[in-house]
Design a protein around this nucleic acid. Structure first.
Length: 260
DNA sequence: ACGAGTACCTGGCAGC
DNA sequence: TGCTGCCAGGTACTCG
């Protein structure tokens, strides 16, 4: 599922290819994709000149010169392609002769104009060990649920949160406030590190969550995954404990030997 | 304010 | 084979 590195990978392709170009037409997918059709987004995009593709957390933002911004969230199954047919097109826009399509088979994606409240991103300078410490210090919720809360930290989903906790040697079910200052410092570094490695690798393309960029290219981050979706820990080779729906209603995985 | 739970949605797969 | 039913995921919502 697209988390920060996957969305950033998409953004870079689109920025390189379409910045400065004009959106000649826009079309919505079937009405069943929308509770309310994103009319404001259509108005901003149609005939507009693309100033830039930006990103905030897992949100992809199209900035149109002199008009405003349109926000895309890929949900868990969202994919952006250039051309390419599917029965699951939520949204499409034409740039010159090319059709940029947003496919959304599980319909968890969003198109709109409002960006929700989001915390700092681990790659921001505002994200420090001190920030994370203050965030976790008094919380009883599982640390994994907290670092996946986009209002607190923007960009981590299940894969990268799982991997960051593994790198920091902290079990996902630990209460936020149970982490020592040293563990919080390791976790802050791990969050930053795992996302920058993900971006560098062009995202993670796991078997069941086949992320591809708009040109159809897979990422390489799956090579660096140590626990998520694995039976054996990539660090020590011991068995990975998988639990379903246990933390924040989500599946979790950790290595009981590497993580305390 | 916080934490827990649930709805949303459908492709894929386990189990019958 | 064909069916049923569960499950994955992120976000937005409710409830206590």
């Amino acid at each position: 599922m697209p988390e920060l590195p996957e969305v950033e990978t998409v953004r870079r392709v689109l920025q390189e290819r379409y910045a400065g170009k004009t959106v000649t037409a826009v079309a919505l997918g079937k009405p069943t994709f929308y509770r309310a059709p994103p009319l404001a987004a259509i108005k901003i995009l149609t005939g507009g000149v693309i100033a830039a593709f930006r990103r905030r957390g897992k949100y992809l933002i199209v900035v149109i010169e002199g008009r405003g911004e349109v926000i895309f969230h890929l949900g868990m199954s969202g994919r952006i392609t250039i051309g390419g047919e599917s029965p699951h097109v939520r949204f499409q826009m034409w740039i010159g002769t090319e059709a940029l399509r947003f496919h959304d088979s599980r319909r968890f994606g969003r198109v709109g104009c409002l960006l929700p409240d989001l915390g700092p991103e681990p790659l921001d300078t505002a994200f420090t060990a001190d920030y994370l410490w203050k965030l976790l210090r008094k919380r009883t919720a599982p640390v994994k649920a907290l670092i996946m809360d986009q209002k607190l930290i923007a960009g981590l989903g299940n894969i990268y949160a799982t991997e960051a906790l593994h790198a920091a040697k902290v079990r996902p079910g630990r209460a936020g406030k149970s982490l020592s200052r040293a563990e919080v410092e390791k976790l802050a570094v791990a969050c930053r590190d795992i996302l920058s490695r993900g971006v560098e690798a062009g995202g993670a393309t796991l078997d069941d969550e086949a992320f591809l960029d708009p040109l159809g290219r897979p990422g390489r981050m799956q090579m660096g995954v140590m626990v998520y979706g694995r039976e054996k820990c990539g660090t020590c080779g011991g068995p990975v404990i998988g639990t379903r729906k246990s933390i924040g209603g989500r599946a979790s995985a950790y290595c009981p030997s590497c993580q305390l």
